[in-house]
């Protein structure tokens, strides 16, 4: 099984050391949540894992290979990435936009039947069939979020790396999207890695949680082992208590220290 492994990753942006010696291993068939305070280096770690940023020091291993040494097109076929900012520059149809997700597969003849099948599948999975022929500029934030997730799924990647995919979605869509990511991991065997701010979501959705603070890994393990009052206090500087609600554990943030 291919693992995605960060080994002693260091990244410096300008005069700020964003990641200093991050090592973590990610598995297929699991949903991993990377949590941590603002500026902890979550997005930077995710872009290293996606092969979009070369670590200054250390390496990201894709199976046995150095991820940065894999040709961009092949990497793009296997690792899907959903940027944090839902940028769409032109007023294209939603289906056209989702079709751009097939870019690493398209030959010289344009979209093939296989591409069309993958696009249809992405539309069905994200429940966006009724949006297919809408202009993306006229979609609501939530609708656009779903279309962009469909864009990432259209590439049918082995790994799906998503930077804050749930931000800006209403609670219903958040749950839908979370459920979708779980299905992808558990049914299709996809490796899902996402950065999250919502600790409840991390607790409920993830199989594996990595807590990042100030460029270091603070904790790494199952959600219930990792999201403890002690670790949350260290990472976020808050008092938290974990209670057991009717439908599972709940995190209550009490106050700032």
């Amino acid at each position: 099984m291919t693992h995605l492994v960060a080994e002693n990753v260091h990244v410096r942006l300008g005069d700020r050391q964003v990641l200093s010696g991050v090592s973590a291993s990610f598995s297929l068939g699991q949903v991993t949540a990377i949590v941590g305070p603002n500026g902890a280096g979550k997005s930077t770690l995710l872009s290293c894992l996606a092969g979009l940023r070369a670590p200054d020091q250390g390496v990201v291993k894709f199976g046995d290979d150095d991820l940065m040494k894999i040709p961009a097109r092949e990497r793009a076929q296997r690792v899907g990435f959903l940027p944090q900012i839902p940028e769409v520059a032109w007023a294209v149809e939603a289906r056209t936009l989702i079709g751009f997700g097939r870019t690493p597969f398209i030959g010289s003849r344009g979209l093939s039947v296989e591409d069309d099948v993958a696009i249809e599948r992405a539309l069905v999975m994200t429940n966006t069939l009724d949006l297919a022929h809408r202009n993306v500029m006229t979609l609501s934030g939530g609708e656009r979020g779903r279309v962009l997730i469909a864009r990432a799924l259209a590439g049918q990647p082995e790994w799906l790396l998503a930077d804050e995919p749930l931000t800006g979605l209403d609670p219903g869509f958040q749950l839908d999207a979370a459920e979708l990511f779980r299905t992808l991991a558990h049914k299709d065997g996809c490796g899902v890695i996402m950065t999250l701010h919502d600790l409840h979501m991390a607790l409920r959705v993830a199989d594996h949680v990595v807590v990042l603070a100030d460029g270091h890994i603070l904790a790494d393990g199952t959600p219930i082992d990792v999201l403890t009052p002690a670790i949350l206090a260290e990472a976020y500087g808050v008092d938290a208590s974990i209670t057991h609600g009717k439908h599972g554990p709940l995190i209550e943030i009490l106050r700032c220290r």
Binding site: A72, P83, E87, V88, F100, P104
Partner: peptide, 20 residues
């Protein structure tokens, strides 16, 4: 042409789709 299409999704989006 293909890179311009992918750039509709922004710099990061395009690079993640293998665009150089």
């Amino acid at each position: 042409a293909r890179a311009l299409d992918a750039l509709t999704l922004g710099d990061m989006g395009a690079r993640s789709l293998g665009v150089n």
